[in-house]
Computed example of a mutant assay.
Amino acid sequence: MQTASTNICERMGRSQELSDSKRGTVIGGHLCNKSIHEISLLLNIPQSTVCGIITKWKQLGTTATQTVVE
Score class of each variant (00 low, 15 high):
64 A>V: 05
18 L>N: 08
16 Q>E: 14
3 T>R: 06
65 T>G: 13
8 I>V: 15
66 Q>Y: 11
66 Q>F: 12
68 V>S: 03
29 G>V: 11
68 V>G: 01
62 T>C: 06
39 I>N: 06
48 S>R: 04
42 L>V: 01
47 Q>H: 02
38 E>F: 05
70 E>C: 06
54 I>C: 01
29 G>Y: 08
59 Q>T: 08
59 Q>N: 11
66 Q>W: 08
69 V>F: 06
20 D>Q: 12
22 K>Y: 10
4 A>Y: 07
59 Q>Y: 06
69 V>T: 07
59 Q>D: 11
40 S>Y: 04
6 T>Y: 09
26 V>Y: 11
41 L>M: 09
51 C>P: 00
24 G>M: 02
58 K>E: 10
13 G>V: 10
41 L>N: 04
62 T>R: 04
32 C>F: 10
64 A>F: 02
66 Q>I: 12
21 S>E: 15
42 L>D: 09
48 S>P: 00
3 T>S: 13
33 N>H: 15
48 S>H: 03
16 Q>G: 04
37 H>C: 06
39 I>Y: 03
56 K>H: 09
35 S>R: 05
2 Q>E: 10
34 K>N: 13
58 K>I: 09
32 C>N: 14
25 T>H: 10
62 T>P: 03
48 S>G: 01
48 S>N: 06
5 S>F: 10
7 N>Q: 15
19 S>G: 09
10 E>K: 15
65 T>A: 14
42 L>R: 05
63 T>S: 07
37 H>G: 03
64 A>Q: 08
40 S>H: 05
6 T>R: 10
16 Q>D: 09
21 S>C: 09
45 I>A: 00
49 T>N: 02
14 R>S: 13
23 R>P: 07
29 G>R: 11
45 I>Y: 00
8 I>W: 11
6 T>F: 04
24 G>P: 06
10 E>D: 15
25 T>N: 07
4 A>H: 03
28 G>R: 12
69 V>H: 05
50 V>P: 00
61 G>W: 06
32 C>D: 14
67 T>F: 01
35 S>L: 08
